[in-house]
Every structure is written in C-alpha cells, then in structure tokens.
Simulated scan of single mutants.
Amino acid sequence: MKNRNAKRILAAGAAAVLAVGLTACGGKENKADDKTITVAASPTPHAEILEAAKDLLKEKGYTLEIKEFDDYPQQNVVVDEGEFDANYFQHQPYLDNFNEEKGSDLVSAAKIHYEPLGIYPGASKDLENIKDGAKIAVPNDATNEARALLLLEENGIITLKEDAGLNATKKDVEENPHNIEIVELDAAQIARVVEELDFVVLNGNYALDAGFNVQTDAIAKEEADSEAAQTYANIIAVKKENKDSEKIKALVEVLQSEEIGKFITDTYEGAVVPMK
C-alpha cells in the first residue's frame, strides 16, 4: 500500500513538473522570442507578398504562418488580443482610427508598400464629361472615404470644405456642380457593383482581387510620388511591446529587402509599389 502511495506521489510530482515545463515553453511571455511568426493578412496582395517572403525568413531561422482575412477590423482584433504577432493589410490613418475607436495601442513596425487608389469606369466611361446625377461609389470606412473624396476633388468632380482633409466625409462636399450621388459602400463590396454605378473608387487590393490594374484600367489615380504614397503606405502592425522583438525585426527586414521589392514590382506592374 505504501509503495502504491509513493508511486502516486511521484507521478503527481512528475505531472506537475511537466505542466510547469509546458507552461514555460508555451506561455505568452516567450511568444515574442520563438521562431514562428504569425501574420494576419488580406489575400491580395498582402498574403501573396508574405508567401514570397517565407523562404527568405526560413533562411533566418523563422517559420512564417499566414492566415487570410477578408474582414479589415478583425485583423487588428486578433493582433491586439495576442493571437497573431502582426498583421499586414492597412495604412497608418486606418490604424489610428481603429486605435481611437477601440482603445487599442497597436503600432506600425514598418512601411512596406503603397497601393494607389483609383477611379474606375462602370456604366460611364468619360470622367471629364461626367453626366449630371452620376453615381460614384466610395469606401465607407473613415480614412479611405476621405482619400476617395480627395481624389474626386483632385479630378475636378467636387470641391471639399477647406479644412476637411483626411477627415472628409460626403457632408464636407461644398461644391457639387454635376450633382453627383456619392454612394458609400464597404470597400470589399465596391468591385461587385461596378456595372451598376457610373464610376467606382477602389482600394488597390480590392481592385487586384477584381482583376483590375490601377495603371491600365483606372481613369484617374493617386500618383506614386504624391503625399498620399507616404500617408497611405501599407504597414506591418504589431502590439507596441512587440515592435522591437527579434522576430518582427526579421519580418520587416525581409519585407523591405531588394528581393521582395523586385517581387512586388514584377508581379503587380505598378498596382502595388514597394516603399523606398
């Protein structure tokens, strides 16, 4: 009987030691130091660029795991909650808006690429002779709507209030000589209604998903050397305390490398532009 009790005590002790060991190995406190990098990303072009980075990261001793998301906000949620090390889908103004709304403290680890926003033809083709009452779809999230409206203003379609800037909404339209109707839609839905509206303003990734190239299909676009290129550069977003971890430094170094820059340039032909 004593031997049985002794064995039980030893077994319990061993289990406890094993549990402590597993906790130490798998606990969140060591996640920033492990050799697996988990990234949430939009399918195009972000996940594609990350796929191209896998072998380069492997050479540095890291395994890159990518999960694709169609939902913008959820990609920030999973990083904020510690489920993923980073995400790759957004620009800084979008992240700032998310942090303000959700009370989170995500930060940019680096700028990787820029996707020029474009105006694409739908039922109408001539932007210079736009018809009265034309319908134009724009993204309905705060930062991208302002960006779309600024692009419409640059092309003489509307005039915004002087101080609207990056906070512009359609309520800030001061002059609308053609009485156009601005249709606010979720960015992911706009490409699906191209034929139903006169024109649409598309984010670069959704344009690519729909088979459009901003260089050849857009009738107006943001220029690569514009202020927008810096303001709306797509970033790697992380929790603030993980920004300087070795794994994030390795991820950034690879994504900003000449090899990935060449992949972006060759693959997307100007629809996606690597940041210098």
Rank of each mutant, 00 (worst) to 15 (best):
E174W: 01
H113E: 11
A210Q: 09
N129V: 03
E223S: 15
H113F: 15
V193F: 14
G211Y: 11
N97A: 14
I112A: 08
Y94L: 11
P116K: 00
L152S: 04
E145A: 12
A188D: 15
T231A: 09
D126H: 04
E154D: 15
I157D: 07
D105M: 03
L95N: 03
H91T: 12
Y114V: 00
N144V: 05
A228L: 12
V173D: 00
D126Y: 01
A188L: 10
H178Y: 12
L202F: 12
L152R: 06
E115A: 06
Q92L: 15
A224P: 10
P93H: 03
I157W: 07
D132Y: 03
D126E: 09
V200Q: 00
A188R: 13
A233K: 04
G211H: 12
F98G: 00
T143Y: 06
A207V: 06
D172I: 08
Y120D: 00
A187F: 15
D141E: 13
L95C: 03
E227W: 11
N167W: 02
A110W: 07
V194S: 13
I182S: 02
A142Q: 13
L127V: 07
D141M: 00
A220G: 05
N140P: 00
P121T: 04
I182C: 06
Q189L: 14
G204S: 09
I190E: 09
G211R: 12
I130Y: 01
G165V: 09
L149F: 06
A229I: 04
I235P: 01
A134P: 02
V173K: 06
Y94R: 02
F98C: 04
V200R: 02
K131F: 02
Q90A: 14
G103C: 10
I112C: 02
A228V: 09
P121N: 04
F199I: 10
R147H: 14
Q215A: 15
E184S: 12
A228I: 09
K171M: 11
R192Q: 15
E101V: 14
H178L: 12
Y206C: 07
A148N: 05
A164L: 10
A228W: 13
A123E: 11
F199V: 08
E223P: 04
A187Y: 13
G165H: 01
N203L: 15
D172G: 06
A148T: 00
V183Y: 11
V201M: 06
E181S: 14
Y120P: 01
F199Q: 08
Q230T: 14
P139S: 07
D141A: 07
N205F: 13
E100M: 11
H113T: 07
L149D: 00
P121M: 03
E184Y: 11
E145R: 13
G122L: 07
I235C: 06
E101M: 14
A137K: 01
E153F: 00
K131W: 02
V200T: 14
L150Y: 09
N179M: 09
E181R: 08
K125A: 09
A109K: 01
I180F: 02
D105W: 06
Y114K: 01
A123F: 03
T143E: 13
N144A: 11
I182W: 05
A218S: 12
L151P: 08
G204C: 04
D96I: 04
I130M: 00
L117G: 02
S108M: 02
G156H: 10
I136A: 00
N176C: 04
V200M: 05
E145G: 05
A109W: 07
E181H: 09
N205E: 14
F199T: 04
N155I: 10
N155A: 11
